[in-house]
């Protein structure tokens, strides 16, 4: 997978509306069979990027290459993409089978072959028995699977997913995303996946492109963006973060004693912090007052209010929830637990 040439390439892709920039000169290469998530808050340009690949938004600048072919100015219906829309956009007057067969008919696939491919997709997505139903006679989860089937049955060069799980309830969402990931890996589908949900992106992506205000902030594996975030935005958007800004490498701006090699902005993940009742012992430990504890089942979370006013977030074993709010406690960590955020000075 690492040696193959990329399937989809975005080169300096930008979109501006008048004076506002929706997407700023973005470079991205998606390898064959790879699932890349475009992750960011609403308005970050992730959907605009996806729509540029599909051909519904014209780039102001840059190029899009699909399997080595420049498709930048190609109309949507000539591009070889299969998109799953957030609203699913199932054709309301067509049955499940007719919806799935739509793309095959447009491509002039002979009827017997089309019927066979539709049947295979129906079986793959466990939609047997629903072939003759209309979309409005299906549950949300079934509609979602029809939308996925309709996009996959044409074997597109790239699959585009626009928040495909956002209309499902929480319980269904997790099962569906695992199912989709399994399908994507088995069929070796090159996929671009738009989401605002960092947990969703972490769970099923090979790599995550974190976007903010039209800019690509970081591109990396879920581990990379979590463990070594490139910017303060990435650090706080992916997972939870305690950030220390230190000008001298000795203390943070709000007076917490640190022991770090260089000045800069440092990240301390909540799960790296331990809490005990012994007094503080110099750098990398700080005493405070327990403010809130929440039991999360698999673990617990605590907020420690420090003398400087900062709230330190701590995640640990369920026993953390035994602490009483108002009790004094000391947070500790080792210097290796601190990660320098390179994008900040």
């Amino acid at each position: 997978m690492t040696t193959a040439s990329p399937e989809l390439v975005l080169e300096g892709l930008a979109r501006r509306y008048g004076n506002t920039t929706a997407v700023e000169r973005m470079d991205l290469a998606v390898k064959p069979g790879e699932l890349v998530a475009l992750l960011g808050p609403s308005g970050c340009g992730k959907t605009t990027t996806l729509r540029m690949v599909a051909g519904f938004v014209e780039p102001s600048e840059g190029r899009i290459l699909l399997r080595g072919r420049d498709i930048t100015t190609m109309p949507p219906h000539r591009r070889d993409t299969g998109m799953v829309f957030q609203s699913y956009a199932l054709f309301p007057h067509l049955t499940v089978a007719e919806n799935i067969a739509f793309g095959l008919q447009r491509r002039g696939v002979p009827k017997p072959e089309a019927a066979e491919r539709v049947a295979r997709m129906v079986a793959l997505l466990q939609l047997q028995g629903l072939e003759k139903r209309l979309p409005k006679q299906l549950s949300g989860g079934q509609q979602q699977r029809v939308a996925v089937g309709r996009a996959l049955v044409i074997n597109p060069a790239v699959v585009l997913l626009d928040e495909p799980f956002s209309n499902l309830d929480a319980l269904l969402r997790e099962g569906t995303r695992i199912e989709l990931r399994r399908l994507q890996t088995e069929l070796g589908l090159t996929t671009l996946f738009v989401t605002h949900d960092q947990a969703e992106a972490m769970a099923i992506s090979d790599r995550i492109a974190v976007m903010n205000k039209g800019r690509l902030e970081q591109l990396g594996t879920p581990r990379e963006v979590y463990d070594r975030p490139a910017t303060r935005f990435v650090a706080s958007f992916i997972g939870r973060a305690n950030l220390f800004v230190s000008a001298d490498g000795r203390t943070s701006e709000d007076g917490i004693a640190l022991d770090i090699p260089t000045p800069g902005t440092w990240l301390l993940r909540p799960e790296k912090v331990t809490l005990d009742q012994a007094p503080a012992t110099g750098p990398n430990s700080v005493a405070g007052t327990v403010e809130v504890v929440s039991f999360l089942g698999t673990g617990a979370q605590a907020v420690l209010r420090l003398p400087g006013g900062r709230a330190l977030l701590i995640e640990g074993p369920a026993s953390l929830a035994d602490l009483r709010p108002g009790a004094s406690a000391t947070a500790r960590w080792t210097p290796q637990d601190l990660t320098l955020i390179p994008g900040e000075h």
């Binding site: 599909a54 051909g55 519904f56 109309p75 949507p76 219906h77 993409t81 299969g82 998109m83 829309f85 957030q86 609203s87 956009a89 199932l90 054709f91 309301p92 007057h93 739509f102 793309g103 447009r106 491509r107 309709r150 996009a151 044409i154």
Partner: peptide, 29 residues
Amino acid sequence: VDPALEEAAQNLGASPLHAFFLVTLPALK
């Protein structure tokens, strides 16, 4: 009518004109 309907049709290989006649028009009947 969801504007994404025509986009979906185009994405699946229908020209804009085809998309209108195959998807939007039936929804308007």
